[in-house]
Design a protein around this nucleic acid. Structure first.
Lengths: 195, 195
DNA sequence: CGACTATTGTACTAATTGGTAAAAAATTCC
DNA sequence: GGAATTTTTTACCAATTAGTACAATAGTCG
């Protein structure tokens, strides 16, 4: 039980609200009034609890990775590369078209192009996307070593291809594509999968 | 020869500079000082010549569509659907990785997520992307009617798939992917093409 | 109760945002 | 050489940006 006046809001719920705002408007597009209003707190409370806008975004990003985007880790643990890819694609579609959330992917459109103020976050997102791609490549390398993928397949190329399709689908979702439409995209994309 | 004091700058060159700034920073991320500095003019000249920031962006967008993105029209005029798709993919890669330009696609990351101020441009970009996808679908419908695509192929799905890959590659390019890497992505994507 | 500690609300700051008023300057028309 | 017209320059505006100082408040500890 901490000392001093108790915090009057649920810090996790507030973070969820902040995540929602960043998800919908991006890092630079989300203003502090937007955030504080959605979080139901005033500005000094935000700064006391989260640091500043950038730190708040990073915490929201962590929450995004562990929560909504958590399916990625499960996908990588599927027994076969094919199963992993299917789960990645269809799980990703469910995420970026979830009616309860803003459509699209925070890691893609949180800060894809921005002014100097957001450059640091832009790089952070790019490096997280790259990390995801690397994890997938490693999964494919393992699959090839296990005979799950043919010896002439290229894990790096496959990983980049799958990630490219996923990012493209995030753009599609942000533009209003439906879950059904994206599932057909995923099925088409899977036709490129090595036999 | 127009009346009054002659304009001291080349309006087309200025627009090219503005396009470059928007391309690199996005609509909201590009500030007026960014723009005027790059264009080499001061603010009232910008407003007199282009209207306002939004009108300037729209003109830059038109220029983008006719100039750098002009390959799309040529691609759609290729004799076969397969040739059109290849030209679309590899031409798009050349565009989004052109060392002379900011990496990525203005129509994708010009305003993917933003505050209320940019919402109008966000919709404009989404509708232009949709228009491109529709044009591709029509091209595929024609191809199927001509026997160039198998009767059981789905033009709408194929168009959405190709556009998705292209948008994904734009994200990849904005994150630093090389031309060579994206060409391998395109080759992988083409394995999904109907025989 | 009183000391201590942390959060809250209000009010503020300095810088930046997009946009403009008004005068000076450069050209054409008569 | 004016009069008319348009662009340039400088200076400004109101609104918004992220961030903070400070006093009031609400708790725990002794």
């Amino acid at each position: 039980m901490p000392l001093g006046r108790p915090r009057a809001f649920d810090i996790d719920k507030a973070l969820d609200r902040a995540l929602d705002v960043f998800w919908r408007k991006g890092y630079e597009g989300a203003s502090l009034p937007d955030l504080t209003k959605a979080m139901g707190i005033n500005r000094p409370s935000l700064y006391a609890a989260f640091g500043n806008k950038e730190a708040l975004f990073r915490k929201a990003l962590d929450r995004y990775a562990e929560g909504p985007a958590g399916y990625v880790f499960e996908a990588l643990n599927e027994p076969t590369a094919r199963a992993a890819v299917e789960r990645l694609l269809f799980g990703g579609i469910d995420l970026v078209t979830d009616p309860r959330n803003p459509h699209g992917c925070l890691m893609v459109h949180g800060a894809l192009a921005c002014g100097e103020a957001g450059d640091c976050i832009r790089q952070e997102l790019a490096s997280r996307r790259a990390a995801g791609q690397t994890a997938l490549r490693k999964r494919f390398e393992r699959a090839r070593a296990e005979g799950d993928l043919p010896p002439d397949s290229n894990p790096a190329d496959l990983a980049r291809y799958i990630v490219t399709v996923m990012h493209g689908m995030a753009v599609q979702a942000a533009s209003g594509a439906s879950r059904k439409q994206l599932r057909r995209v995923a099925e088409t994309a899977l036709r490129a999968w090595p036999a």
